[in-house]
């Protein structure tokens, strides 16, 4: 999987909440067309980034045993926009997790500024080894990047102060 729209988890509380960041860069090609002369991060990619934060939170809570796919976005509200140089913080809260799906609530901010709010319904599909491994390995990569004790613990690291 290369379709990553988060750069790093900075907090990960298994089965409860997660916080990830996304740094917007002018090197991202689509920004040159969206819009010419005035680059703005597409809202759809902000939705995707929040979904990835929440989706991996859900996948981890289910031990990466099924493939998590975003099924529905019942609610999304944009309050502002993001431009190159911004660091977006996605905060996801797991509201419900079960065998066949889950619900996540997510908020995006730039510093203190509220950027977007969304709610997601995820469906759990039968295990497809390569794909679930992908979601799992992303969390392991986060561990290598030293992205916080709680992430390390969720990724199977030996952090004593990890999950809460």
């Amino acid at each position: 999987m290369r379709w990553f729209w988060i750069d790093r988890f900075v907090e990960f509380h298994s089965g409860a909440s997660a916080r990830a960041i996304k740094n917007v860069s002018l090197a991202e090609e689509h920004l040159h067309d969206h819009f010419p002369g005035y680059p703005v991060m597409p809202g759809s990619l902000i939705i995707e980034g929040m979904a990835q934060t929440g989706g991996i939170l859900l996948a981890e809570s289910l031990k990466f045993e099924s493939l998590i796919v975003m099924a529905k976005v019942p609610k999304v509200v944009f309050h502002s926009w993001a431009v190159p140089g911004d660091t977006l913080t996605y905060e996801a809260k797991l509201l419900d997790a079960r065998e066949d799906g889950g619900v996540v609530e997510c908020v995006a901010r730039i510093g203190e500024r509220l950027l977007a709010e969304a709610e997601y319904v995820f469906a759990c599909l039968p295990n497809s080894q390569s794909k679930t491994a992908c979601q799992e390995s992303f969390l392991k990569t986060m561990q290598l990047l030293g992205a916080g004790d709680s992430v390390a613990a969720a990724a199977g690291g030996a952090s004593p102060s990890g999950t809460n």
Binding site: A71, K72, P74, L95, D96, D100, G101, V103, V121, A123
Partner: peptide, 13 residues
Amino acid sequence: SIDFLDIVFRLEK
């Protein structure tokens, strides 16, 4: 079909 899952979640809540 996916709405049924959503409806179940919301009814539970």
